[in-house]
């Protein structure tokens, strides 16, 4: 039987990736938790789910001196939430396969407390683009006791008027500024809706701040 080069590469790359992720856990996560986390990572790989959030959760638990059982339970729960996130993407009409970044984005939105139907609405309304910023914008408003569904409507309207990506975060920021100025929540939403798409951009960081910035080793959890 002739194997395609892509399949051969995938067969070779998968164990290598698993090994590198196991290496990241060694010495930083209680040894008793590593086999469970490792098997969950392999399971996620086989199911085409993102593995990085599982590794991050285990590293976080290890850094916070959590017992092995608790770390394993947190990773186990996360795998279920990642499955839910992908199922939501499929329900909302995203063509499979869902990318790891999109699944992680949906997972993060649900984790922040957004109701599934609201997330589904946003996914369906923004079919061809990253939804991270839109979901964070809605979650920011929900955190400040705005009704999630009306917050989603505002952000979807902003996207329809041409605002994209990080600019959607400026919409929720503008609404919160209006509340700080004394408007009710409904008034604040109405004021910003009238301004769309001309919401103010955030100020650039001060030159002194940029000058003092340093770079750490970095790993992205989820794109906004």
């Amino acid at each position: 039987m002739a194997l395609r080069p892509g399949l051969i590469l995938a067969l070779l790359a998968s164990p290598l990736a698993a090994q590198s992720e196991r290496d990241r856990l060694e010495g930083r996560v209680p040894a008793a938790a590593i086999p469970t986390v490792d098997s969950l990572v392999q399971l996620a790989t086989r199911e085409d789910l993102p593995t990085e959030p599982l590794v991050q959760k285990a590293l976080e638990g290890g850094a916070k001196h959590q017992p092995a059982g608790r770390i394993a339970a947190a990773a186990q729960a996360m795998l279920g939430q990642l499955r839910d996130a992908r199922a939501l993407l499929v329900r909302a009409g995203d063509a499979p396969p869902a990318t790891a970044a999109e699944v992680t984005t949906i997972y993060a939105a649900l984790k922040r407390g957004l109701p599934g139907p609201v997330v589904e609405r946003i996914v369906a309304a923004l079919p061809q683009e990253p939804r991270g910023s839109a979901l964070h914008a809605v979650a920011d408003l929900a955190t400040h006791h705005f009704e999630p569904d009306s917050a989603a409507t505002l952000i979807i309207d902003a996207a329809r008027q041409g605002l994209r990506g990080e600019r959607l975060l400026d919409v929720s920021t503008a609404v919160l500024h209006e509340v700080q100025r004394g408007h009710s929540r409904a008034e604040a939403v109405a004021v910003v809706r009238r301004q769309l798409p001309n919401v103010p951009s955030p100020p650039k960081p001060a030159r002194a701040s940029v000058a003092g910035a340093r770079r750490p080793g970095t790993t992205t959890l989820a794109p906004p």
């Binding site: 590293l59 750490p216 970095t218």
Partner: peptide, 28 residues
């Protein structure tokens, strides 16, 4: 999650000893 939860890699500083600690970091 930007530094794999390593605890000693990004220190904050309190240069004027007023109890407010700060760090400015370049991240993706």
């Amino acid at each position: 999650s930007f530094n794999d939860w390593r605890t000693g890699t990004i220190p904050l500083e309190d240069r004027d000893h007023d109890g407010v600690w700060r760090a400015t970091v370049v991240l993706p």
